[in-house]
């Protein structure tokens, strides 16, 4: 089995296990039917509600693979929603609102990247700055209010529309995943990112432009965080600077790690991150739907189970654990 496949086995196996559990405990999970012109099912809902985390996880994969991390994505999501809502207030078209929001988020991503590559600030601190200040900036843009989007606006299609029976957020996430996979595999971007994350010094000696590669990863992350923010804002038809994207940076990082990309950088798998993001979202939906003996499971259990999943996945990836297990096996033999 090639290495790239073996790393995908665990997240996909975990996802399959979770879906099988759902098939037994709540059969309605897989029940597909048409409602309001689109396919409806808890399974589709998982993808629909998980779209922001899916989008974030895609960008986070590149950032982590390049040896960095981005804590600011939740705040950048809030900025995207705030900018879009403000532009829509001026009777501008939906396209203008989307373009303005994405431009601001691209700038946010570049800011993070420049701080890391040119000022030499460690990625955790550099993005922590925007994580703290970004939510303040979003609240500044919205004046601390929740700005609602008018019901008839074409902007809402991003969050509530459907095409061929599939909800728009799912399509946007899939399109982004397809475009990014093509970008990293058809061009040398993917190779460069893995090289920079794997060994920065060697990459530099090989003549690779380390700074531009890192910068590109953060710029793409900014764009995807903006897209996630737009989906979120269009879904609730409002820009909520306080809550949009709150805590999602952690889910995104988790999705990437579950997907088999090491937090230390290097090799990455976009497909693995997608599986990781779907796994995280299915967990929440499963817990919401699961019933034991007629009693529903407390929602708070979600956090505890998430903690267990993180630890198990980390331990599975740890070479130390493998070494320890091997040693005990040898000792027993």
């Amino acid at each position: 089995m090639p290495d790239s496949m073996s790393r995908l086995v665990w997240p996909l196996a975990a996802l399959a296990l979770l879906l099988a559990f759902n098939a037994v405990v709540s059969p309605s999970f897989f029940h597909l039917h048409f409602a309001e012109g689109r396919l409806a099912s808890p399974l589709i809902d998982v993808l629909n509600q998980g779209a922001p985390v899916l989008l974030l996880a895609l960008g986070m994969t590149l950032v982590i693979a390049a040896g960095g991390i981005d804590l600011s994505v939740g705040a950048v999501m809030a900025i995207a929603g705030a900018v879009a809502a403000r532009v829509l207030e001026t009777d501008a078209s939906a396209a203008a609102a989307v373009a303005a929001a994405l431009a601001v988020c691209l700038a946010a991503g570049l800011w993070n990247g420049l701080l890391i590559t040119f000022a030499g600030v460690p990625p955790i601190v550099a993005t922590l700055i925007l994580m703290v200040a970004g939510r303040g900036i979003a609240q500044l843009i919205t004046d601390g209010q929740i700005i609602t989007v008018e019901p008839g606006s074409a902007f809402l299609a991003i969050g509530r529309g459907a095409l061929l029976g599939l909800p728009a957020p799912v399509l946007i996430a899939l399109a982004a995943a397809g475009a990014l996979s093509a970008a990293v595999r058809l061009t040398s971007l993917g190779l460069f990112i893995e090289s920079v994350g794997g060994n920065e010094e060697a990459s530099r000696h090989a003549g690779l432009d380390v700074r531009s590669t890192r910068l590109a990863a953060y710029a793409i992350m900014g764009l995807l965080a903006g897209l996630a923010g737009l989906v979120d804002a269009a879904d609730i038809a409002a820009a909520d600077a306080n809550n949009s994207g709150l805590y999602l940076e952690l889910d995104a990082i988790l999705a990437v790690v579950i997907g088999g990309t090491a937090l230390t950088g290097g090799r990455f798998s976009l497909l693995g991150s997608l599986a990781g993001a779907i796994l995280i979202q299915s967990l929440s939906t499963t817990i919401l739907m699961a019933q034991f003996g007629g009693r529903s499971v407390p929602v708070e259990l979600n956090l505890v189970i998430k903690a267990a999943v993180v630890l198990i996945v980390c331990l599975l990836q740890s070479s130390e654990l493998r070494r320890l297990l091997l040693r005990t096996r040898r000792a027993v033999a």
């Binding site: 952690l250 990082i253 790690v257 937090l263 903690a307 993180v310 980390c314 740890s318 070479s319 130390e320």
Partner: peptide, 21 residues
């Protein structure tokens, strides 16, 4: 296990917050 502190303490955060709730 030589695991990144970021992830282990993130799991600790989920665990402690979940237990408190």
């Amino acid at each position: 296990f030589r695991l990144p502190p970021f992830l282990v303490t993130l799991a600790g955060m989920f665990l402690a917050r979940g237990a408190a709730l």
